[in-house]
């Protein structure tokens, strides 16, 4: 029993940053915008949070900066992919490269000087779960959520109602960036309170995978994040019995399986209808 609890505890700890980032991605994708820049936004958020906390000594200010810079990075994506209607996937890839590049360049001065009093992790873990429930509440119980989901399903209809599709999508993408920034801040202020180049180590991509894996559903994302955390944890627990690589590749394989199964049942994996499609008034 104790053993089980400890395994679950680890799964939750690992799952927290990917849950945070995935929640943001769920919101953005629910509004119809794929953002593959999560890894880059997370890295920028992690650096901004750490640099601020390190120079001012104020952890909460650091957290705020991490969130802000994440959102700022997302604004690039919103500008290119929403306003200028460029290919969302390519724009996201570019944002990841830019984010990793800029954070690696500017982070050099912060290497080798850790934060002595990091933020506690428990609040983040609980906060992430509460945020997931909150996002679910907003998405499914409020007018705002209805509009946001409609923008992802049928932007034309929303437009006809006189609501700006571009504005809704911008806000959703900014929220996605803020959450990625928050996930990055969790890494650099709490989970591994230091800056090293490459600190995100692919977690952003796992968050993207998670978003699809849970069928764009924020509450299922909680379970999904902990499930991925469990796999990652088991990869090391079962070492010597099962090659770690198989457990580590499993999340990515499962995404493909889930997408295929959903497609088989003709549900499209509950993917928003207009996912990945730029919206232009008068088209469609």
């Amino acid at each position: 029993m104790n053993e089980l609890l400890s395994v679950l505890g680890q799964a939750v700890a690992f799952g927290t940053p990917i849950l945070l980032a995935a929640l943001g991605e769920v919101v953005a994708e629910r509004a119809g915008v794929v953002n593959l820049g999560v890894e880059g936004m997370m890295a920028l958020g992690a650096l901004a949070a750490f640099a601020t906390a390190q120079t001012t000594g104020n952890l909460l200010l650091g957290l705020l900066m991490g969130v802000l810079v994440g959102a700022l990075a997302a604004a690039i994506h919103a500008l290119v992919a929403v306003t200028l209607r460029a290919n969302q996937f390519v724009s996201g890839l570019a944002l990841t490269a830019l984010g990793l590049g800029v954070s690696g360049l500017l982070g050099q001065h912060f290497v080798g000087s850790p934060l002595l009093e990091p933020l506690p992790g428990a609040e983040f873990r609980i906060g992430a779960v509460l945020l997931a429930i909150g996002v679910w509440g907003v998405l499914y119980l409020t007018q705002t959520g209805l509009i946001l989901r409609s923008v992802g399903e049928n932007p034309g209809a929303v437009d006809v109602m006189g609501i700006s599709v571009v504005r809704v999508r911008w806000l959703a993408v900014l929220f996605g960036g803020a959450m990625a920034g928050l996930a990055g801040s969790y890494l650099s202020l709490s989970y591994r309170p230091a800056w090293v180049d490459g600190t995100t180590a692919g977690l952003g991509w796992i968050a993207v995978a998670l978003t699809i894996f849970v069928g764009w559903h924020p509450v299922r994302a909680i379970l999904g994040a902990f499930f991925f955390g469990l796999l990652y944890h088991l990869a090391f627990r079962l070492q010597g019995r099962v090659p770690s690589e198989f457990l580590l590749m499993l999340p990515y394989l499962l995404v493909v399986v889930v997408l295929s199964l959903a497609a088989l049942r003709r549900q499209q994996g509950a993917a928003p209808e207009a996912l990945g499609l730029p919206y232009k008034r008068g088209e469609r």
């Binding site: 200028l84 390519v90 490269a97 984010g99 590049g101 800029v102």
Partner: peptide, 16 residues
């Protein structure tokens, strides 16, 4: 990391 930053920017400007 210079290369990452450069190619990211290049791509963003091109598609934008």
């Amino acid at each position: 990391r210079v290369i990452d930053a450069l190619s990211g920017l290049l791509l963003l400007f091109l598609i934008g």
